[in-house]
Amino acid sequence: MATLEIRDLHVSVEAEKGPREILRGVDLTVKQGETHAIMGPNGSGKSTLAYSLAGHPKYTVTGGTVTLDGEDVLAMSVDERARAGVFLAMQYPVEVPGVSVSNFLRTAATAIRGEAPKLRTWVKEVKEAMAALQMDPAFAERNVNEGFSGGEKKRHEILQLELLKPRIAILDETDSGLDVDALRIVSEGINRVREGGEVGTLLVTHYTRILRYIKPDYVHVFANGRIVESGGAELADKLEDEGYEAYVKGGASE
């Protein structure tokens, strides 16, 4: 059973006046089959947590540990983390000019699975996953994220989630910039993956809106670089009513 354990994680970024600490001791355990929502105001560090777990070079871990089934995630390169089963759906997916979606997906699947998927079943698999996300088949021949609308980019991220079948899925503000229809389609995609029971999900979001479609087992409030309160799904209702005011007072994020 896959378990991601984050212990006392401290992360800094280089800023003009030297390193600035963004994460100040994060503790969190995500187990296979569980869904955790990380909620917090802008600048609280929740995206930093997502990118740090994936290994983005901009972030420097200055303390703490992250393990996946006891393996030291922080010692792994970005691609090793992905192959170990960590997936980050990005808030701002990057354009890769000249690389088609189909080529990209197959290259990624080959890397993750350790062997090239059999062409025939692969084509079918991609086709079905795209249809489920209501994506036009012509999409596969476009260049990765190039000229994609906000909604198309997010569907493309979730398409990868469905095809790459990670053990830990980190979804960084996947709901931002989506209209209601797109949010529903994307959420259904996430739910299909969750229902498999194989994935632990870390849902990073600013708004409670997506939680109407994706029911979390746990909700954590993130403020000033750490988790300040944890609870069940009902905590999201409280946030919906009261906002983040109570958490940022006094300890305003930088």
Partner: peptide, 27 residues
């Protein structure tokens, strides 16, 4: 950022680099 994106999908750095340069020319 392109390198990070591709690596975050499990593609090793060398191969990611090759993919990006190929894409640059393919365009």
């Amino acid at each position: 950022e392109q390198l990070f994106y591709l690596q975050a999908r499990g593609i090793p750095a060398d191969e990611a680099r090759r993919l990006v340069v190929r894409g640059f020319f393919a365009e």
